[in-house]
Amino acid sequence: MKRVLLTLFILTAYLGFGQDAEEPVEEGEITATVVNAQNGFPMVSVHVINLNKVVGTITGQKGKFTIPAAVNDTLYLTFLGYKSEKVRVTSDMFKFQETEIALTELAYALEEVIVRPYQLTGYLEIDVKNLPISNNAYQYSISGLSKSYEGGSKSPSAVTKVLGAILNPADLLRNLFGKKPKQMRKLQQMKQDDDIRDLLASKFDRETLTELLQLEKVDIEDILNNCNYSRSFINTANDLQILDAISSCYEEYRVLNRR
């Protein structure tokens, strides 16, 4: 009887030790490899962003990356010419460090492009005068105020828009940012991560911004419109410039809200 009890005790202790040893890791760093879905070759310089922790990194020479993460975090992978992917972090990704993530190359249908030369001479002083100039991004400044305001086109309505925002900015910005406080707090984290800033500086599609801020493109445009940025700026700025513009407007809101 004693021998049976001793055997049961040893078996129970062994099973308990095994369960502790195999208990899944919930948070830490994960390492994975990004490959081309067509040929399986590792991909270098792919941007990887943890959307939950708002940290980024890029893949190395062998396509590998390491990034802080927790179970159920979402990784966002993007590379020029490839379809962006979102990957949910699982406990197996901590247990097995050989996870492969495949990116698929995009197929673009090229359209005919008509190039109209500007008859450049090669002399900078002369060619600058011959290039077309956009007149859609006028800025208005008011004596006594430290900043200028973009009003879009040169028209009376543009001036009215600027004055309206200056005279009653608290209500305007509260409506914009009060509904998305969590997403807006990510702005500072995004601005402090060099990898994310480098990625945004090279992009113009607002795709990464919408994923990070959990906003639609139309929401981003509404914010910039109501913060007195011109249509020309909204259409031509890269994603980093858009981020800085939203951040500047948000900081103004925070100051006004404290008052």
Rank of each mutant, 00 (worst) to 15 (best):
V87H: 05
V87A: 07
E105P: 03
N130D: 10
N130V: 09
F65S: 03
Y140F: 15
S153I: 10
K53L: 14
T74R: 09
F79A: 14
F94T: 08
L75S: 04
I49G: 03
G151H: 06
E100M: 13
M93N: 06
T104Q: 14
G63M: 04
L131M: 14
Q119W: 08
I49M: 03
Y123C: 07
R88Q: 10
E150S: 14
V128S: 12
A70N: 08
I49W: 01
L110E: 13
G122R: 04
T57N: 10
Y82R: 01
E125W: 09
S155G: 00
V71T: 15
L131I: 12
E125D: 15
S146R: 14
E112H: 12
T57D: 07
Q119K: 13
I133Y: 07
Y82C: 01
V89W: 00
L75H: 00
M93V: 03
K86C: 04
L103P: 11
A107P: 01
Y82L: 02
G152T: 05
K62R: 13
G63P: 04
S148C: 03
E111C: 03
V89L: 01
Y76I: 04
Y82T: 07
I114W: 00
I142K: 07
E112S: 15
V89M: 02
N136F: 09
E100A: 08
R116S: 10
T104H: 12
G60R: 00
E98S: 13
A137V: 00
G144Q: 10
S148P: 02
M93P: 00
L51I: 05
A69D: 08
K95M: 10
G81I: 12
N135D: 08
K154Q: 11
L124R: 14
R88F: 04
T104N: 12
E112M: 12
N135H: 11
T90G: 02
T57M: 06
S134R: 13
I101C: 06
N136W: 05
T104K: 12
G144M: 07
A69G: 07
Y108V: 14
P68W: 02
K154A: 10
K86F: 01
G152S: 02
G56S: 05
A107L: 13
I67C: 05
K95Q: 13
F79L: 15
I58L: 08
A137Y: 05
N135E: 11
K147S: 11
A109I: 14
Q61H: 10
Q139A: 09
Q119Y: 13
V113I: 14
Y108A: 12
L110N: 12
S91E: 15
I133V: 11
I126D: 15
L120K: 08
P68K: 14
S91T: 14
V55Q: 04
P117N: 09
I49T: 05
K95I: 05
E105N: 06
V113T: 09
L75M: 01
Q61P: 11
Y123F: 12
G151W: 03
E85C: 04
G56V: 06
L110C: 05
K147L: 12
A70C: 06
V115Y: 13
E112I: 10
G56T: 06
M93H: 00
Y149C: 02
N130M: 11
D92S: 15
I101W: 01
I58M: 10
V89I: 15
E100N: 14
